[in-house]
């Protein structure tokens, strides 16, 4: 019983990180119809920023998310202006390859600047909190709070603001949106900033429970893609559902199946795709 509680707490925090990450990814993939293979590196940069601010400079933790969001957003804008916008009429494959190239450039750059050793960032909170016979690890608390906060903010933004409406319109149909007099170029930038902020926060939250390393992005990228494909391309509710499903499948798999969890997660995704090729929440 105590173990199950533990696993659920872990699964919940893992799910929230997956969701943050996958929502950003699904936004980009839904609107630009391109896989961003460098999105994992956005998370990594978020982690590196946290390392620089908290572990190196000793600044308070609260600075980290804001600094990370600014840095990663700048990178996102470079991607939009340097790759996605110039290549917007070239289909999905070629820009996707370009992001793959960019991902290796970013990985190598970080490797050269910071070395290949995993960098540790002290946790915001430590210790354990006792509930009945079970323990609640305190370092998961900021993740759960931060994750829920970000997701709520995102939903408010997409559902309630004019800009959010514009983004949803753009997702439906780029041409129709242009006809309604929207400034597509600037909305595209907004999408990048939103997606970058999500990745940055995911990186900040992650750094308090795991090490930061140049190659950490690729693992999360695969999970993120899995969530996006499972939930349905471009669907934010899909990313939410998919993130919870994968987070729980992953945590329980790792606890009870050990190294076979990879196989299990992969088989699970394949199964979802066989039954529903458009994803759990995707439209046909």
């Amino acid at each position: 019983m105590a173990q199950i509680f533990q696993v659920i707490v872990n699964a919940l925090s893992l799910s929230l990180i997956y969701i943050l990450f996958a929502t950003g990814l699904t936004l980009i993939m839904g609107i630009f119809d391109v896989c961003n293979f460098a999105y994992g590196e956005f998370v990594m940069v978020g982690g590196i920023a946290t390392y620089l601010i908290v572990a190196k400079s000793g600044l308070p933790y609260i600075v980290a998310p804001f600094a990370a969001m600014i840095i990663v957003s700048l990178i996102g804008i470079i991607f939009e202006k340097g790759i996605f916008y110039p290549m917007r009429n070239r289909g999905g494959l070629e820009p996707a390859l370009a992001t793959f190239g960019s991902s290796t450039i970013m990985q190598t750059a970080v490797l050269i600047l910071f070395g290949g050793m995993p960098l540790g960032v002290p946790s915001i909170m430590s210790g354990q909190f006792k509930i009945g016979s079970a323990y609640f690890p305190m370092d998961r608390l900021p993740i759960i709070i931060g994750g829920f906060l970000m997701i709520t903010l995102l939903f408010l933004f997409v559902q309630k603001t004019k800009l959010g409406l514009a983004i949803r319109a753009l997702q439906q149909d780029q041409d129709a949106a242009a006809l309604q007099g929207m400034n597509i170029a600037s909305i595209r930038v907004v999408v990048w900033v939103v997606a970058s902020c999500l990745a940055a926060v995911a990186g900040v939250l992650l750094s308090s429970i795991s090490y930061v390393s140049p190659t950490m992005g690729s693992g999360y990228l695969l999970k993120g893609f899995a969530v996006v494909i499972m939930g349905g391309l471009g669907s934010i509710p899909g990313a939410l559902v998919g993130g919870f499903v994968l987070g729980f499948v992953d945590s329980f798999g790792q606890t009870y199946l050990g190294s076979y969890s990879y196989m299990f997660a992969f088989a699970f995704i394949m199964l979802v795709l066989i039954v529903r090729p458009q994803g759990l929440m995707g439209k046909r």
């Binding site: 494959l93 196989m263 090729p277």
Partner: peptide, 28 residues
């Protein structure tokens, strides 16, 4: 059977996942 029913960019992702899966099989 699964991959070729998807769009190109998602197929690319699935090949990367397949790469991970079979490498894992080779190792495990």
């Amino acid at each position: 059977l699964i991959g070729l029913k998807m769009k190109g960019a998602y197929f690319l992702f699935l090949t990367i996942a397949l790469d991970g899966l079979i490498s894992w099989l080779f190792i495990s």
